[in-house]
Design a protein around this nucleic acid. Structure first.
Length: 284
DNA sequence: CACCATGTTCCTTG
DNA sequence: CCAAGGAACATGGT
């Protein structure tokens, strides 16, 4: 499910639901997702702790908690990997097949599930330090972006996925931003002209902000039975949420006409991942 | 059987 | 130290 916009929408959804909820019990069903934290460490840290806030950094979810008898707040880090999901459900409901961690909050369970187990729910926060600037914050300046691009000979599409360049852009929005900026995904990062760097910088911000705005309008609190599998699914498979998929101009549109010029959208492989672009609108 | 999938880390090489 | 490339992780859909 997750690139920055989807994580942001999830954070906004979860924050009011979790605020002031106390964790009564911690059930670790897949220890791998905690690493390097151990199940014992997690249980000891979280049992009895109360959620005080939920925020985001790049694609990471940041849960802050207050432990009983302690002054310092505790930081729990979440990352959804490719297929992770977090939601609340009634405490007596059946657990999903790939539930990795379940936090009992009383009448509700906080479910962290991940079909492929690429994600994390951990007390280890070291990886945050490697992240680049937040694209929607003032720290993400065109100068800083430009300087970082000059040090790379990688194709710009591949470089956009580097979380130390800018935090939160993933495979979908990298293609979308390049389309909006009219830049070829194959172009070497250091060879972008200043005008292109500026256009791309703006396109990254715009594409992410629009996706957040769109995601924020989708009602997220539909019941688990209806919404769980649809929430944040944004491929274009049969059960995709059209409302969301329609917003993507090039991603997964191989062979379809470009919305701007009508040329057929192309799919190529870069760094073992799919890139979609318009060969006419994105020639340089 | 093949290939594909919203992501990151680890290892190697230069 | 840094940049870059590739395998690995694990499960499921087509």
């Amino acid at each position: 499910m997750p690139e920055l916009p989807e994580v942001e929408v999830l954070v906004r959804h979860l924050a009011p639901l979790l605020k002031n909820k106390t964790i009564r019990a911690v059930n670790v069903r897949r220890a791998k997702v905690l690493l390097p934290t151990s199940p014992h460490q997690l249980r000891r840290a979280l049992t009895g702790a109360k959620f005080t806030g939920v925020s985001r950094r790049g694609k990471f979810l940041l849960f802050t908690l207050r432990q009983p008898q302690r002054r310092e707040s505790l930081l729990l880090l979440g990352h959804l990997g490719m297929t992770g999901r977090i939601y609340l459900q009634p405490a007596n409901a059946a657990l999903p097949k790939h539930a990795a961690v379940v936090l009992n909050l009383g009448r509700q369970d906080f479910i962290y599930e991940d079909q492929r187990y690429f994600g994390r729910l951990t007390l280890a926060t070291a990886n945050l330090a490697r992240l680049g600037p937040e694209p929607l914050a003032a720290e993400f300046t065109v100068e800083r972006f430009s300087q970082a691009l000059k040090r790379s000979v990688q194709p710009i599409k591949v470089k956009l996925l580097d979380q130390s360049l800018v935090a939160g852009v993933g495979n979908i929005y990298a293609s979308e931003a390049l389309f909006r900026a009219g830049i070829s995904p194959r172009r070497s990062a250091r060879r972008l002209k200043p005008e292109q760097v500026r256009r791309l910088w703006r396109a990254v911000r715009r594409v992410l902000a629009e996706a957040i705005a769109c995601g924020s309008t989708i009602p997220l609190n539909h019941g688990a039975a209806v919404g769980r599998d649809r929430l944040f699914y944004f491929g274009r498979a049969a059960n995709a949420v059209d409302y969301y998929a329609e917003r993507l101009r090039v991603y997964d549109r191989d062979g379809e006409p470009c919305v701007r010029c009508g040329a057929a959208i192309k799919r190529i492989t870069q760094a073992a991942r799919s890139t979609f672009y318009c060969p006419h609108c994105q020639r340089q």
